[in-house]
Amino acid sequence: MDYIKKIYYGDIPGENSGGGELKGFSDPSLESGDEAWPLWEVFIRSKQGLDHKHAGSLHAADAAMAIENARDVYTRRQEGVSIWVVESKDIHASNPDDSGSFYEPAEDKIYRYPGFYDLPDEVKQM
């Protein structure tokens, strides 16, 4: 299966997704200069019982800071009871160029929907 040919990092072009593996990490002698903080994707559960939903993205040096920043940026009006953050570079996505063939198998299977079946009216509530 090679539907996912390219590696996509969420919505942000991979080469721009910030530090990720912070530049200069392999060389401890390198002073931390003005390198960019990596990018994080933020997912928020708006209330108990609901899924976490993608809210947006932000930059932060590490996960703890990303969660605090997400609180300030995305939940100023009690929009959330739980926050997930994941570095954007760790998100792999399907390729929109392939979406025609990728989702094609589901297109001709109308029998997967309840409306496909004609039943007599006497069968109430089914």
Binding site: G19, L22, G24, F25, P28, S32, G33, D34, E35, W37, A60, A61, D62, M65
Partner: peptide, 14 residues
């Protein structure tokens, strides 16, 4: 502040 945050993160990773 930005530099300190990066340095801290790098130290912890190390």
């Amino acid at each position: 502040v930005r530099e300190a945050a990066v340095a801290y993160q790098r130290k912890r990773k190390a």
